[in-house]
Each structure stands twice: as C-alpha cells, then as structure tokens.
C-alpha cells in the first residue's frame, strides 16, 4: 500500500471517530423540542439541564481520565456561591456570574489537583470526599458572607444580554441553562476528540504506557481536573442564578452521591451518559416523589445497589440497541 493511500485511510478513520451520529442529532433536536412540548414543566427541565451539565463534568474526569471522585459537589458549591455572591455584591449580569463561577471552580480544581492525583483510588475517594466536607464546613462557618445555614438570600439577576428577563415560569431560565449546556457540550466533544483527549484516554487505559509514551501524566490530569471543575462550577452558577438562592446543600455529600448514580445510570465515557442519566434520574425522582416523598433516600439506595449488582448492563444494552436503530449516515461529514 503506498504511503498516500494509507494516509487517506488513516485520515478517514480518524474523521469517522469524531463524526456526528444521527442519534446525537436526534437527541439535541428532542432537547430543543422539549421547550415547545412541555411548556408547563420548565422548572424541572431546568433542573435536568443543570444536573446534566454537572454529570458531564464528572464524566470528563471519570469516563475519560479514570479519576474517581466522591466530592464533586465541592465544585458545584464553589460555582454556586461565587455566582451568587457576585450577583449580590458586584454585578447582576448572568454571564459575568457564569464566567466567575467557572473561573473560581477551575482555580479550586487546580489547587486541589495535587491532592487528588496521587495515591490509589481509595485515597482519591477519601480526599475528594474530605475536600467537599471541608468546603461545607467553611461555607457554614463564614455565615456573615454566605448566610450559613439560612442560605445565601437576596440574589437578583439582571436580564441576559440586558434583554431576556428571568420569569417565574422558568422559561428564560431553562433556555439559558439548555444553551449553556449545549455550548459546553460542544466544547467538551471537541476536546475529547483532540490529541489532548486522546492522551487522557491513554492515561485511563494504562498510566505506565502513557508515561512511557512521553505523556506528562500529572500535568494532563491536573488540566482535565481543572476543566471538569470549571464545568461543575458552571452548573453551580446556573443553579444559583436560575433559583436565585444558594444553600449549604450544594456542598452536601448526597449531591456527589446522586451524581455518581446519574453517571451509573447513563454510563461513563461517551459524554451522553450524564445527559441521559440526568433525565432518567429526575423522572425517577419525580415519579417516586408523587407517592412517597419522604423516603426518596431509600429508593436511591436501592437503585444504587441494583445497578451495581447488574442492572447497569441492562440499561446500557438498551441505549446501544436504541442507537443502533438509527441508520448509519453516508460518507459525508
């Protein structure tokens, strides 16, 4: 085979890996259509979009770099408080708050990455959990700034671009969250298909070979950890802005645990797992809340146990089967 022909094959093969699958297009069309289809459910749709973004953030480190975390709420909370405080004391502009929340969370991620990147899975789980608990305590004790156990109140948001006001039905809020989710998703999709993303997958597969291939493993992990933190910060900022309230609950352990369940439901390592998981999770929560709101925790526990014991394969098989029903597109890209 001559070099140029083989090069063509290599190029095509690489392109195929990043091309949009019809199922992906269908997914986003549906997401856009939800806006018109469920005009009375904007509040829950907004919650789904935010949870999806949060789960996407965890997927970036767990699914693509193999970093386990039990304390991802640390970054959600950081973004939420940052955006809330900025709105309360400095500027009510939503986009500024979003950027600020992402920046502070990314910084926190960068600062804590040396703690997380060493040791075994077990120490990682412990340290991420510890960091989230510490932040909970810090936010609790800085009551003069954060409102402590009463939560951060008195946040008012200016209209987006000075035009689109947040309404009580959550219409603007949902549109805003969905757009932020979509844009950040596109960026994430681009990144995981880049040489950087490929090196992360290498690290996840085999750290020894990655280092022996010239990949500076600690730096790459720090980079994706900070990026993932920024995504979680964005989710936190959206939460603070669209609910105009921040409570200590954002740092709570159950946030991190719920998030793991979301990713377990949807599956990690293909970006859509968090989004699908978030939808399933919220519908589940909504359905159970109608007949037994008090013992939601019991059901979440049961689902976790069942999923780990083998239910996961069933769901992922179903998702794969669904995707397979879409006809494969032609060579165009």
């Amino acid at each position: 085979m001559s070099g140029t022909v083989l090069e063509q094959h290599v190029r095509q093969s690489l392109r195929r890996a990043r091309r949009w699958h019809p199922a992906e297009l269908a997914f986003w069309l549906l997401a856009a259509a939800s806006f018109a289809l469920f005009p009375t459910r904007f509040l829950i749709l907004n919650e789904i979009a935010i949870l999806a973004l949060f789960a996407l953030s965890l997927d970036l480190i767990l699914g693509y770099a193999g970093i386990v975390s039990l304390g991802h709420a640390a970054f959600l909370g950081m973004g939420a408080y940052s955006a809330g405080l900025l709105a309360k004391y400095v500027t009510a502009d939503p986009l500024a708050g979003l950027a600020f929340g992402m920046a502070t969370s990314a910084l926190l991620g960068l600062l804590t990455s040396p703690l997380v990147l060493r040791g075994t899975d077990l120490t990682r789980l412990m340290i991420t959990l510890g960091v989230a608990l510490i932040l909970y305590e810090v936010a609790n004790s800085l009551a003069w700034l954060t409102g402590g156990a009463d939560g951060l109140q008195g946040i008012t948001m200016a209209p987006i671009f000075g035009t689109f006001d947040f309404d009580i039905f959550g219409r603007t809020a949902y549109l805003y969250s969905l757009l932020v989710l979509f844009i950040l998703f596109l960026i994430a999709r681009r990144i995981v298909n880049s040489p950087f993303g490929l090196s992360l997958r290498g690290i996840r597969d085999n750290q020894l070979r990655a280092a022996a291939s010239g990949v500076p493993v600690p730096w790459r992990l720090a980079a994706i950890y900070a990026l993932s933190a920024a995504y979680a910060g964005a989710a936190g900022a959206l939460l603070a802005q669209t609910t105009q309230f921040v409570s200590l609950d954002v740092f709570d352990f159950h946030r991190s645990a719920d998030l793991m369940l979301v990713l377990i439901i949807g599956g990690a390592g293909y970006l859509y797992g968090g989004l699908i998981g978030a939808i399933a999770f919220k519908f589940l929560q909504d359905a159970i809340a109608t007949f037994t709101p008090q013992y939601w925790m019991f059901w979440i526990g049961l689902f976790l146990v069942l999923f780990v014991l083998g239910g996961r394969e069933l769901i992922h098989g179903a998702i794969k089967a669904l995707v397979a029903r879409f006809p494969e597109r032609g060579a165009s890209s």
Partner: peptide, 18 residues
C-alpha cells in the same frame, strides 16, 4: 497518541486529529 505527543500536540485541546 504517541505521534501526537512526540510532535508536541498533547496540550492542543481543539486540534482535530484528522
């Protein structure tokens, strides 16, 4: 992956492989 690292592309977040 190895080639990209050798050529110093590893921190290019938006480069398309193809």
């Amino acid at each position: 992956l190895v080639t990209a690292e050798r050529l110093g592309r590893g921190m290019r977040l938006f480069q398309r492989l193809d």
